[in-house]
């Protein structure tokens, strides 16, 4: 599919970490077949999880990479950033209460839902091409039944929207006891 290929730049790259070498080799093969440009690399000692092989990927496509690995039964530990202080995407969220509805923000993505029904009222923020698509797919669905952005999207925006949705589900379910 030719996804996320960018040969001349090493910025925005990440490492997929594994516990076993055979999983790393399997992942490399599957990701290449799926159109991702990846290469085997040695993780720094501080990140090793029992395996001295990792796979370098473009972080922008992190949601898609994780999905391909999960769908093919590849066991991986996590994906970390190579060139930023923060190894993993933000896990912290912010919540805004509008009275009848709530908005949850994770990174650059926001989801608003009605408190009484859990219906998703709006999706905002973000800048990747899957965001308007996810907006249409999530709108008017119940937050507990909506499709997962990380299952439909490809990018880091999709991953952050998934985290916002996760928190929204937690808030909605907690309020309903």
């Amino acid at each position: 599919m030719g996804l996320f290929k960018d040969k001349s730049s090493s910025r925005g790259r990440g490492l997929t970490l594994f516990k076993e070498v055979k999983e790393a080799l399997k992942a490399e093969k599957i990701l290449k077949v799926s159109g991702y440009e990846v290469k085997l690399a040695a993780p720094p000692p501080s990140l090793r999880k029992g395996c001295d092989l990792a796979i370098e990927v473009d972080l922008m496509g992190q949601a898609g990479v994780e999905r391909v690995l999960r769908q093919n039964g590849v066991e991986f530990d996590r994906i970390v950033s190579i060139d930023t202080e923060e190894l993993e995407p933000l896990r912290v969220v912010k919540v805004t209460d509008f009275g009848d509805s709530m908005m949850v923000r994770a990174g650059n993505m926001k989801v608003a839902f009605e408190k009484a029904t859990g219906i998703i009222l709006n999706v905002s923020g973000g800048g990747c091409p899957d965001v308007p698509y996810l907006h249409l797919e999530l709108l008017n669905k119940k937050i507990t039944e909506a499709p997962r952005p990380c299952e439909l999207g490809f990018t880091l925006c999709a991953l952050m929207l998934d985290r916002a949705l996760d928190e929204g589900v937690r808030i909605y379910e907690e309020a309903r006891g």
């Binding site: 972080l59 923060e86 923020g125 952050m160």
Partner: peptide, 26 residues
């Protein structure tokens, strides 16, 4: 940019708003 994206622009390392430093997000 919106305020979150402004934090991304202020982070000299981040290549996407998902990877900004936590104190900038907050």
């Amino acid at each position: 940019p919106d305020a979150g994206e402004m934090a991304f622009l202020a982070d000299s390392e981040a290549t996407h708003p998902a990877y900004i430093k936590r104190y900038l997000f907050e």
